[in-house]
């Protein structure tokens, strides 16, 4: 499948976005302004998974919330399909076009259980009862979560809640889905499940995703990666070149794939190892075999 990326028109375009919080310090009404984001410029293209990385506290969650129209920037412009966020009316329509799953899933739910939560959520978007029931069936079958819909959230594990939160954000078929560290709380099997689902969404449903992450398994899903640091987009990488460059990964506080870390350690020890074609185990084993067998024959 041919994927049109940079040449296509941007789905979402962010220009000169700036955001600061003003804090009340005391009863003399003295305040202090802290700039969190200054001059953010970025584009998200249709059907891409765009990664957003950066050190803790760099403003990733704040930027995500601005893009999801949960908080408003002080300055700057955001357009979706060319239309300014301010011009999209009624306002709730924007929340249908761009949805977000929070880092803290507890903040996501209002109802006692998923069914109740979906009822509250989708009523806001004018869904009737039948449509709501259909939406619940559709997303839960996609995830295999049918058994959880009536369980109270208090009885579910963090991972199960995370899966339901993503299911909910997908229920209204958004054009852009923003995920803030979606598998940070999940174990291996659940992580795999979410990741497989994200791939499926990208391929079959053409959902565009902005993925805030620190994890390699999630980064591997992305097409491009933006690095946010000190409130601005510092760098942009093609994922493939990022994931095979240990120095760049480390400079951006990202984890290094194990195979790459071992090869780099061997290089530093002065062994004549070559570049890995990719970070896969077969590519790694081939390289080590070449190294050790060559030595054997010499």
């Amino acid at each position: 499948m041919a994927v049109i990326k940079q040449s296509a028109n941007a789905l979402l375009k962010v220009t000169h976005v700036q955001y600061a919080v003003e804090q009340l310090l005391n009863l003399n009404m003295e305040t202090r302004k802290t700039e969190i984001l200054h001059d953010i410029n970025l584009s998200v293209y249709p059907n891409e998974i765009l990664g957003l990385v950066g050190p803790n506290g760099s403003g990733k969650s704040t930027l995500s919330k601005i893009l999801a129209h949960i908080i408003e920037p002080n300055q700057g412009k955001i357009t979706l399909n060319g239309a300014d966020y301010q011009s999209i009316q009624p306002e709730w329509h924007l929340h249908q076009l761009v949805t977000m799953v929070f880092q803290d899933v507890e903040a996501q739910f209002i109802g006692q259980n998923f069914t109740e939560d979906m009822l509250l959520y989708l009523t806001n978007f004018g869904y009737n009862e039948t449509q709501i029931e259909n939406a619940i069936t559709e997303v839960t079958s996609l995830f295999g979560l049918q058994d959880l819909v009536e369980q109270p959230f208090t009885a579910l594990s963090g991972g199960q809640k995370q899966l339901l939160a993503i299911a909910e954000a997908l229920a209204i078929h958004p054009q852009l889905l923003i995920l803030d560290e979606p598998t940070a709380q999940l174990d291996g099997p659940n992580t795999d499940m979410v990741i497989q689902l994200l791939q499926q969404l990208q391929r079959e449903h053409r959902v565009t995703i902005l993925l805030v992450t620190h994890k390699l398994a999630e980064l591997a899903l992305t097409d491009r990666v933006l690095v946010l640091n000190q409130g601005t987009i510092k760098q942009s990488y093609a994922t493939k070149s990022l994931l095979t460059d240990q120095a760049v990964l480390e400079a951006n506080q990202l984890p290094v794939p194990d195979t790459l870390a071992i090869i780099t350690a061997l290089k530093q020890a002065g062994l004549p190892v070559g570049q890995l074609a990719d970070n896969s185990l077969p590519a790694f084993t081939r390289e080590v075999a070449r190294l050790l067998r060559r030595q054997q024959h010499a």
């Binding site: 870390a261 071992i262 350690a265 061997l266 080590v288 190294l291 050790l292 030595q295 054997q296």
Partner: peptide, 16 residues
């Protein structure tokens, strides 16, 4: 750890 694996490979490389 990766460091231990790298050290083991280095060891084998030196011995061969």
């Amino acid at each position: 750890s990766n460091q231990e694996i790298a050290a083991a490979i280095t060891q084998i490389w030196k011995l061969r």
